[in-house]
């Protein structure tokens, strides 16, 4: 087992940790969504990279090729990307609504304004 044989995993983990860090550490909601996106793409890598065969080609059947990369992860990730953008849109819509209700998209400010006025978030819409 050499370093290079696990290089794709290393990239995946780096991206995943970076995304995780953005989501946890940053209070800005849009930044958090971008971090979530980074995390998500790392999962794409996690799925796609093991499916690759060196010397293989894209999984489109042709008489000239014998070795194909694995098509199954591609299918799964294809749907994941589109679901990802749909959830991103939903998250952004929520952010916009929050911004209209609280006039801020910083998590700390939102929490502060909630504490200053207990039970106030229900009626403020």
């Amino acid at each position: 087992m050499s370093f290079w044989s696990h290089f794709s995993y290393a990239i995946t983990i780096f991206l995943m940790v970076a995304g995780l860090y953005i989501v946890i550490a940053r209070g800005n909601l849009i930044k958090k969504l971008v971090g979530l996106g980074v995390f998500q793409t790392s999962v794409y890598m996690l799925y796609i990279a093991p499916g690759k065969l060196i010397g293989g080609t894209a999984p489109i059947i042709d008489a000239n090729f014998k070795v194909y990369s694995n098509p199954l992860p591609h299918v799964l990730i294809l749907t994941a990307i589109v679901v990802g953008v749909a959830t991103l849109a939903l998250g952004l819509a929520l952010v916009v609504r929050i911004r209209e209700a609280y006039d801020t998209i910083e998590e700390d400010d939102i929490l502060a304004s909630d504490e200053g006025e207990p039970g106030g978030d229900g009626q403020r819409r």
Binding site: A58, I60, L78, T79, I81, V82
Partner: peptide, 12 residues
């Protein structure tokens, strides 16, 4: 059906 592509990509 024959090359890369499909409903998702076309829709987008």
């Amino acid at each position: 059906d024959f090359g890369p592509g499909g409903g998702f990509q076309a829709g987008v």
